[in-house]
Write a protein that binds this DNA or RNA. Structure first.
Lengths: 170, 170
DNA sequence: TCGAAAATCATCCGAAAGGATGACGACAAC
DNA sequence: GTTGTCGTCATCCTTTCGGATGATTTTCGA
């Protein structure tokens, strides 16, 4: 049930769905309107269908991505809370790794910054990171600079080193 | 490039996109076909549009979910690898660290190159490394390029990662 | 619902890193 | 003495990073 709640009772999602419906309605209305105003070429049904299909497929993909993204964020915060307590008694063998939130907090490193640090540590370039996270390269660079600043690092290799020293990275 | 590779050069993704296109084409074809076979009710364009829209929106959302899911899976497997390998080469706290000479030999990595890899892993820039080793920056860069080539790395962060995986670096 | 924090994106610039290629001396192995 | 490897250095060029700055949008908590 929680999954549904997260998706449906989320105001952000509500707005997206609303926009989705609105755009759909508008499109249909436009279609109907144009039918009376302009000359409809023969066999235009499939053309319209294709257009609408492409449009909505794109929008659908975007929405799908969007949904999972916000779901991931929610999940992350939950996980952090969850892991926090057993962290003291954690076996060093199997754990999915819990970053040292104490250090993270004192340094003021945000979740997103840590996420990017992680990808840097895995050897990805800024462009690759941008692609993976569905943001622009500029954004990644901004996060990088801020994270480096907070870590007192001048380079990404140094940032990775510091991150591992502080238990922020696996 | 790897980010794009994960999504676009992924056989699973390719199949999805293929299916996506196929379904789209089939739908359009069906639409065209039915136009000649059945009686088309008046104002059916918007009906068809709505139908197609809903269908493709659903499909799009599904695809979006699918994409992010496989992306997560890929990321997870990477993590598993990362955790798995260095586990065996984990130093028992005190040893001054002995690099895996077997891997070093098979890859043809020279001592000097390993030395430079080590300094890279410690977060030094090429210039700093040059100063420490009393050689020119150009020399350091040459060693870097050769080492990266042997390790199959495109970046120093990647080289460090590979080096640790192979037990060449502490 | 208001404001702070976070995330996003952009542009500009200089520095660092990466890639290709050629060259030269030292040294060991054949 | 020839060959091959290694270390050294250089030049030229392209790409990537890092830093500064400003703006907008999202998100979240009071």
């Amino acid at each position: 049930m929680a999954g549904g709640d997260i998706l449906l009772h989320n105001p952000i999602m509500k707005r997206h769905v609303l926009i989705f419906g609105l755009v759909g309605g508008l499109l249909i209305a436009t279609l109907q309107y144009t039918e009376y105003r302009f000359v409809i070429i023969e066999h235009s049904v499939e053309l319209y269908s294709a257009l609408v299909a492409i449009l909505f497929a794109t929008f659908g993909i975007w929405l799908g991505l969007r949904i999972t993204r916000s779901r991931e964020t929610i999940r992350e915060t939950v996980v952090v809370k969850e892991v926090l307590v057993p962290a003291e008694a954690l076996a060093p063998s199997e754990a999915p790794f819990a970053p040292n939130t104490a250090h993270q907090q004192t340094l003021g490193i945000t979740a997103r910054e840590l996420e990017i640090l992680n990808l840097i540590a895995r050897g990805f370039s800024n462009r690759e990171i941008a692609t993976q996270l569905f943001v622009s390269e500029n954004t990644v660079k901004t996060h990088c600079v801020r994270a480096f600043d907070k870590l007192g690092a001048a380079r990404r290799t140094q940032a990775v080193l510091r991150g591992k020293e502080l238990g922020l990275l696996p």
